[in-house]
Design a protein around this nucleic acid. Structure first.
Lengths: 335, 335
DNA sequence: GTTATGTTTGTTACCGGTAACAGTCCAAGC
DNA sequence: GCTTGGACTGTTACCGGTAACAAACATAAC
């Protein structure tokens, strides 16, 4: 097994200097057509594979964008990533993805590891990080993007939606419909900061209407099953809730199933609400009342800002994306 | 903004040579406790961040495992990745994920890009790759894992389930129940090779029972909506199918909704079948007839084999995982 | 024919580490 | 006192590229 060809081997084979090979392969001008052709042929012939490690080290030009998301099981993050990827790929950037499982400590460890690769940029989900992480990020020599949530004082770049406002608007809408015994159904507090903000917004809006928000929490990852279990818990609360606000549409669907099983149908017997407008909603016989958040567009916008920042282009650094309330058929005006 | 500290700065600050710093930071023995402590303090003090680029280049020791999956929207791949990650992380390996969107050309381009990073290993989904890709992989100097499907002649390592066999078993089961006008509902042929294998298995088994498998194809990514649209197509076939076999449980759920909307309920009026035992099944009022594939376990097993291969440990290189047929309540014996 | 100018090519000095091979130092053994 | 050997620490030569500058060459202008 012979050793892989390096740039010097190509240079020798083509009868030129190493620098000419480097230039020819990178498409940098300053190499005559004839020489370039000879070099390309030699490289092809030797099966030459350039080493990015060496390239990045010498040129201090990284093409690595590191992205941290809480989980890949939530379509929200898959969509955001999908939106970013295309734009980033077009700019010649690789993406490396980590899942933190909603654990700030894991996120912190990841940041520490990633900076060792001298990436072009870091992308984190949300704006709530461990203090150590924030400190490290502020000292980082690369653009940092906080995505999906908005902050008063972001580390650097920030694109997201205002989850608290979303919760408040949903709460106001429901209160307006006449619901007065609302319950929030979510997972263990502290796991998902965005969810907590939506819950806080809901509570605020209902409080203004003179109603208090009960809570049912399941200690599990967000899932259909968690929605089912959470609904069971919520239905056992007293007073029995007249509307269940699930952390997202997946839980809402699980909850809907649980309500059905308990002989309660929405919207007749109970209101059911989700968040994030997930696509299961498109096939349900009755559309969930939910919110629409532009995840793919958000990803694209974030990627655009990031690329601009990397190119040193002067551009906005913060972007609050619009989100819509989508009244569905699982809630209705109360008597 | 001063330049980031490098190993030489730490060495100077601690009053030792560069090599001692290198050794101390990597925990290699041969450094006295006193010196090590002094070095660690100096490194901490300077906020020293080692460069992996330089380290990997000099030491030719990569910790990067590159993983390609078709999509992150299918929980199947999120679960496989989840299973692998933990084991890989414990072995000190980073993972970098790419989505090929079921496109062999994108996969090929990805392989070409990734080898430039001299990764520790490559992981691909499935065993059907572009010829160029296979060629490059066979010539690669690192372990290559093909995951989720099984091959007669894998490139290197291989862990997966036999999708054709799964299709055949499902077909035999349905034929045994008395279904004779089966239809397969999937996405555009050629996009998902595993799905095609399941379809082929179904067709075979039904052929043995003297029935022929009709097909309904939707040109869209696999999703709830595709299932709904596919079901509409399938219900328009003649003869009208007595059982719809969806490419996976998500499409099956979309199809179930479409059947309901058309006034057909399963299993009374029509049989509905999925694949892959996705977790939506856990909250449905009637469980889908489906198959259970051990994705998380598969990911773990794959990671284990990979780590063994990287350590040069002699271990098996191929593993066919067991898969179970799970009869549900959306099919029943036919008159 | 000579000088100015631009294009192509080569040289040298790193980028920030690690492997392999010396030294150096000191206590133990003869 | 003079080896001997082990525990530390340092030196040198890379790993595989790129940036910056210098040289060679050709063409155009005077």
């Amino acid at each position: 097994m012979e050793k892989p060809a390096k740039i010097a081997d190509v240079a020798e084979a083509a009868g030129v200097s190493i620098m000419s090979v480097s230039r020819a392969l990178r498409g940098i001008e300053g190499v005559s057509e004839a020489t370039r052709a000879r070099i390309l042929a030699a490289a092809e012939d030797l099966g030459y594979v350039p080493s990015r490690l060496a390239g990045a080290l010498a040129g201090s030009t990284s093409t690595l964008v590191c992205i941290s998301v809480p989980t890949l099981f939530d379509a929200v993050f898959a969509e955001i990533i999908g939106g970013m990827r295309e734009t980033l790929a077009r700019a010649g950037l690789e993406t490396i993805i980590e899942t933190s499982d909603y654990d700030p400590a894991r996120e912190a460890a990841w940041v520490a590891r990633m900076v060792e690769w001298s990436p072009a940029a870091l992308v984190l989900s949300g704006v709530d990080h461990a203090p150590r992480t924030v400190e490290r990020l502020r000292g980082a020599r690369m653009p940092v993007m906080e995505l999906w949530d908005v902050a008063e004082d972001p580390v650097d770049l920030n694109v997201g939606v205002d989850h608290r406002d979303l919760g408040r608007r949903m709460g106001a809408h429901l209160a307006g419909l006449g619901y007065r015994r609302p319950a929030y159904v979510g997972i263990t507090p502290g796991r998902d900061p965005r969810a907590e903000k939506r819950a806080a917004g809901l509570a605020e809006a209902f409080a203004e209407a003179g109603a208090s928000l009960q809570q049912a929490r399941v200690d599990a990852p967000p899932s259909f099953e968690a929605g089912r279990d959470g609904a069971h818990l919520a239905l056992g609360l007293s007073p029995r809730p007249d509307v269940l606000c699930f952390v997202n549409d997946h839980l809402a669907f699980g909850g809907l199933a649980a309500c059905d099983a308990a002989g309660l149908s929405a919207p007749e017997d109970i209101g059911v609400v989700g968040f994030n407008g997930l696509n299961i909603n498109n096939v349900l016989p009755r559309r969930l009342t939910t919110t629409a958040t532009p995840r793919v567009v958000m990803g694209k916008a974030a990627a655009r800002l990031l690329v601009a920042a990397l190119r040193g282009v002067r551009a906005e650094r913060r972007l609050a994306m619009p989100a819509r309330l989508e009244p569905g058929e699982t809630t209705r005006p109360q008597a």
